[in-house]
């Protein structure tokens, strides 16, 4: 049964996942090519100096990719369920409703984490080849809130989509925008290094609200 539920989610999201993976790969290649060109033109020593001395971050091209991925995966998963309230079909399946919704959200979360992990692994490998450990560490610390924003945006998208009333959707959207914005307050490298726990908490906070919207959908709450 769970395999079938995951299969359904895969059918809805496969094209989006492929498109996001291609965009992500292309952005990483472009970013690495650009850094490589700078290395050849000005030399790696100068690049190190720029990174450390002027606090410049070279991997900014991926800033909003996890965010876009989170929203896109959420939309591709839940918009088809909104058409004519197709979610009723899923909630009528002989599986406990909370388990079915948890499986859908779990699938989306795993896809988001997988895309983020690939990006993070690629960044770490690239940075560790050309830069000292401290800079590599700074790369991870700087990009971490962006990946967290992606996860947060995914959960918020699910929360908004599963909510049955437009008024509450608008409120959820505003809360969501506020939460996501917290991850982009500053673009200074390593600015969030002292708030790793708080960033993680903000990222997972909207997950707590999804169940309530599902219950409201089930009860047929209207505007």
């Amino acid at each position: 049964m769970y395999k079938a539920l995951l299969y359904k989610e895969f059918l809805k999201t496969r094209k989006t996942i492929l498109a996001l993976a291609l965009v992500s790969i292309a952005t990483h290649i472009y970013m690495y090519a650009k850094i490589g060109r700078s290395m050849r033109l000005v030399g790696i020593d100068h690049l190190w100096e720029v990174i450390i001395g002027r606090n410049i971050f070279l991997f900014g091209a991926i800033t909003f990719i996890p965010l876009v991925a989170g929203i896109a995966i959420g939309l591709s998963q839940f918009v088809p369920e909104l058409r004519n309230k197709s979610l009723r079909l899923s909630l009528h399946l002989p599986v406990k409703e909370s388990v079915a919704v948890a499986t859908f959200v779990g699938y989306g979360t795993i896809v988001n984490v997988a895309l983020s992990a690939l990006s993070l692994v690629s960044l770490t490998i690239f940075a560790s080849i050309y830069f000292p450990w401290e800079i590599t560490q700074r790369v991870v610390q700087t990009t971490y809130p962006w990946f967290a924003a992606g996860l947060c945006a995914y959960a918020i998208t699910a929360w908004i989509c599963l909510e049955p009333t437009w008024t509450r959707r608008a409120v959820n959207g505003l809360i969501g925008a506020g939460l996501v914005n917290l991850m982009f307050i500053t673009s200074d490298p390593g600015a969030y290094s002292q708030a790793i726990g708080l960033v993680a908490l903000i990222a997972i906070l909207p997950y707590a609200f999804i169940a309530e919207s599902t219950v409201r959908f089930k009860q047929g709450v209207q505007d």
Binding site: K8, L11, K12, P80, R83, N84, S86, R88, L89
Partner: peptide, 8 residues
């Protein structure tokens, strides 16, 4: 409306 998963 004979609702079914339209993406399948």
């Amino acid at each position: 409306g004979h609702l079914q998963y339209s993406f399948m």
